[in-house]
Design a protein around this nucleic acid. Structure first.
Length: 826
RNA sequence: GCGAGAGUGGCGGAACUGGCAGACGCACGAGACUUAGGAUCUCGCGGGCAACCGUGGGGGUUCGAGUCCCCCCUCUCGCACCA
């Protein structure tokens, strides 16, 4: 290549090292509350320190970095922190397999990954870095737990829980995916254990209601959370037992079908089952059946409708009819009351069950324009209709009947309107070592006693034996387990379960406001400045957390608000869920062998190229198909930019030379293009978050700049080059900064302002408009921008190609849209 | 089954409110510069000889539809015996 302008070759490694050093030395990205400046908090979901940064991280953080850098240039005070979701199972597994302590393993990984992030040039405020395994972090979490305990938002109970055999621990409902562990994909079974729960159900209504306020969230995520919370409106109905005290309470969404009940179905786990069958001939059969159902994994239970009759009966609360009680495999103890009133005529499951066990079908809803008969039915009628054989409710539409019947039940003390949620309380006990200790002790005399706040943190001891042979390592740590009861001073044992790591990630975003604060979890002023009242301005992460993390964090935010820590209803005002990084039509993963190593990319092409490709190849919310050749393309663009700017350097007017008002020809056009690009890029970056089109627009400007290099005046060239570098700064900060410095700017580009489009520059005198004949493009005309309809029409008719198509035929209609097009209908 | 989203060149993707389909990039082709080129630069690049035809398929609304309406097909994701 000819050595244009005497410049040396673009060497990304040298340029990037130089600027990264400078940023670190100057603490360029330290977030400082600045009165009079708008605060902007942009956050990417923090990583689990698994060992290495992967392309998914690079994409996620590149998106966040564009936003952070653009906002800084725009004049906002920006908080853009990074930290580590550092507790969790992989650390423990590594310890068992490789005999490294989880703390060591985690710290090493953090060190390595921090270096990788720094080499990518992300503009984090490293002074605010935090790791959740640090006692200075989790001590506050323990405090929150104690406060939740006081308010009965944390509680312990014996419960059926999801147990992952492989991970040897309990999983929350949210962590069971298709009957398998979310992490290791091992089969999940049921176990009954003493567990700590957080009462997220107390917030079900608010979590659901406030979804409507999350207008900055993708609808998909909102819908998933709505479905997960799963609110059902209906009624509870009490069915008294026959010949003994007690009753079966059911929840139903169809109180209108109550007169169609012909039997009862109980879950095998229902507490009443044992007493109902005790000493009856059914006892043995029910026990066998219950054992079998319990042993069946949840996903397989969905097979067929099966059940066993107990010998017991109950009474219909309104008719007094005698109803047999069954135990059935399809009734879930976790939902509603674990008991179902069976209405075979109007519920498909009950219908199938009734047919299988020859139970009566009683029609009580007749659909519009049809006449169902029990004997001819092949499926339940689950739709609306009018009530029949329902005493005083006959003739009512089913919708009205739902309310009337619920009201009557309430009057008579037989039940009443009720709402049920699918959402369960959050089980947070984990029988594992590498997590935050749950701050309670068990005293023989006093029972469960909270650790006094003054004694926090309950520090996780490091000297444990990690054998992998089962059982919590903490339980084997004598010095940790044996303690004194804070209440009576007697001997006591510590809780040896640790907290689910999702607890740590439920509040970390708030801790970033004051990560070093020791007097409390949050510094009032910092939290007030950065976070309140609307939360993180822009949160970016993968869709896989749509219900897990994002629901827990919402819950925690509301709890912290009610505990008086935060004046905040929702943690994340705007959410951007970025797509996966795909290669060869599959998600990049080690097991598939299709990973691209960011280190290699940085080494070979530089961080700027890696970032640019991630941002250019697809809009953020879509999946990104990896292309090695696409990466080459981005690298070429940066080399071209480097050469062009160097070639132009000597032609540029001094910094800040104003562009004259009376430009002509090439200059006028370049000036206009510069400002048009500023406008387009600003809109794409700030409002649409479509970085791919923003980059494309800058590429066009760079192309135009190359075309007019020799012809334009120094002042317009200076303006165009400066604008290009400013617009590129958030995407490729190293090379943009370097070129900025090399084109004579005294300050750094990081400190420069985001350019503003000048409306006057955008004005054009003439425009080229398409002319259609009968809706088909036939010609183009160049007309003054302010041309009137008549002028446009005349110009259109003068176009030779248009004339050819009109061919003297009379105009039936003409459509003239000023500034857009002309359509002639003949 | 319920819910959400998506189908545009060889590929990734543009076209924001109905108004020039395919911006930008990749791949590909031709040429230039060269001892050489996997560097760089220039030009071309939806299909068709053409009239024309083209945004998953079929209808419709409109002067005009990738965009709006109806029906259908395919794919992705989430939930799923939820009473």
């Amino acid at each position: 290549m000819s050595d244009v302008g005497g410049a040396e070759r673009y060497d990304p490694a040298a340029v990037e090292a130089k600027w990264q050093r400078r940023w670190a030395e100057r603490r360029s990205f330290a977030a400082r509350p600045t009165p009079g400046r708008p605060a902007y908090y942009v956050l990417e979901m923090f990583p689990y320190p698994s060992g290495d940064i992967h392309m998914g991280h690079v994409r996620n953080y590149a998106i966040g970095d564009v936003i952070a850098r653009q906002r800084r240039m725009q004049g906002d005070a920006v908080l853009h922190p990074m930290g580590w979701d550092a507790f969790g199972l992989p650390a423990e597994n590594a310890a068992i397999q490789r005999h490294v302590h989880p703390a060591r393993w985690t710290a090493d990984n953090i060190g390595r990954m921090r270096g990788q992030l720094q080499r990518l040039g992300f503009s984090y405020d490293w002074d605010r870095e935090l790791a959740t395994c640090d006692p200075r972090y989790y001590r506050w979490e323990q405090l929150f737990f104690l406060r939740m305990l006081e308010r009965d938002l944390a509680y312990k109970r014996r419960a059926l829980v999801n147990w992952c055999e492989h991970c040897a621990t309990v999983l929350a409902n949210e962590q069971v995916v298709d009957g398998r562990c979310w992490r290791c994909e091992g089969v999940v079974t049921e176990r009954e254990l003493e567990q700590w729960f957080l009462r997220i159900t107390a917030y079900a209504e608010e979590l659901l209601r406030d979804l409507d306020r999350l207008t900055g969230w993708p609808e998909r995520v909102v819908t998933m959370q709505r479905n997960w919370i799963g609110r059902s409106v209906g009624a509870t109905i009490r069915f008294p037992l026959e010949d003994r005290a007690g009753e079966i309470v059911v929840f139903t969404t169809r109180p209108d079908t109550v007169f169609g009940v012909t039997f009862m179905s109980l879950a095998v786990e229902h507490p009443l089952v044992a007493t109902l069958v005790a000493g009856t001939p059914a006892e043995e059969a029910v026990a066998v059946f219950a054992r079998r159902v319990r042993a069946t994994p949840r996903e397989e239970r969905a097979g067929g409708k099966e059940g066993v009759a107990t010998a017991a009966f109950c009474r219909h609360p309104l008719t007094g009819a005698r109803l047999p009680i069954y135990v059935a495999n399809f009734v879930l103890m976790e939902y509603g009351t674990g008991a179902v009133m069976a209405v075979p005529a109007h519920d498909q499951r009950d219908f199938e069950f009734a047919r299988a066990y020859q139970l009566p079908v009683q029609i009580v809803i007749q659909p519009e324009g049809e006449r169902l008969t029990a004997s001819s039915m092949t499926a339940a009628w689950e739709g609306p209709g009018r009530l029949v054989d329902s005493a005083t409710f006959n003739g009512l539409p089913s919708e009205t009947a739902k309310e009337r019947i619920a009201a009557v039940l309430a009057e008579k003390g037989l039940g009443g309107p009720a709402v049920t949620y699918r959402l369960r309380d959050w089980g947070i006990s984990r029988q594992r070592y590498w997590g935050a200790p749950i701050p309670v002790v068990y005293c023989e005399g006093c029972g469960t006693v909270p650790v006094p706040e003054a004694e926090l943190p309950v520090v996780l001891p490091e000297d444990v034996a990690l054998t992998g042979t089962g059982g919590s390592p903490l339980a084997a740590h004598e010095a940790f387990v044996h303690t004194r009861c804070p209440r009576c001073g007697g001997a006591a044992r510590r809780e040896t379960d640790t907290m689910d790591t999702f607890v740590e990630s439920s509040w970390y975003f708030a801790r970033y406001c004051s990560p070093r604060e020791e007097r409390g979890p949050f510094d009032r002023a910092e939290v007030g400045y950065w976070l309140e009242p609307d939360g993180v301005d822009r949160y970016i992460g993968g869709i896989e957390h749509a219900v897990l993390h994002l629901l827990y964090a919402r819950f925690f935010t509301k709890v912290l608000r009610d505990l008086g820590y935060l004046a905040l209803d929702e943690p994340f005002q705007n959410l951007l869920t970025q797509g996966m990084v795909i290669k060869d039509h599959a998600k990049m993963s080690k097991s598939k062998g299709n990973v691209v190593d960011p280190d290699y990319l940085v080494e070979r092409y530089g961080a700027d190229t890696a970032r640019l490709f991630c941002l250019f190849a697809a809009p953020p919310e879509r999946d990104l198909e990896w292309s090695d050749q696409g990466v080459e393309g981005m690298s070429r663009f940066l080399h071209r930019l480097w050469r062009l700017v160097h070639a132009l350097a000597r032609q540029l007017a001094p910094v800040d030379t104003p562009v004259p008002a009376d430009l002509g020809g090439v200059d006028r056009d370049l000036h206009r293009r510069t400002h048009a690009t500023i406008q387009r890029v600003t809109e794409d970056v700030v409002e649409r978050l479509h970085f791919n089109t923003a980059i494309a627009a800058v590429m066009e400007l760079v192309g135009a700049l190359g075309d007019v290099a020799g012809a334009a005046s120094p002042a317009t060239l200076r303006e165009a080059v400066d604008a290009t570098l400013r617009l590129l700064a958030p995407f490729v900060p190293h090379v943009a900064n370097e070129l900025w410095e090399r084109t004579g700017h005294p300050g750094t580009l990081d400190e420069a302002s985001w350019p503003a489009a000048d409306a006057a520059a955008l004005v054009r005198e003439t425009v080229e408009l398409p002319v259609q004949v009968n809706g088909k493009l036939r010609g183009r005309i160049v007309v003054p921008v302010d041309a009137g309809d008549a002028e446009l029409l005349a110009a259109a008719l003068e176009d030779p190609r248009v004339q050819q198509y009109v061919a003297g035929r009379p105009l039936r209609k003409q459509v003239v849209v000023r500034g857009r097009m002309v359509n002639l209908v003949v």
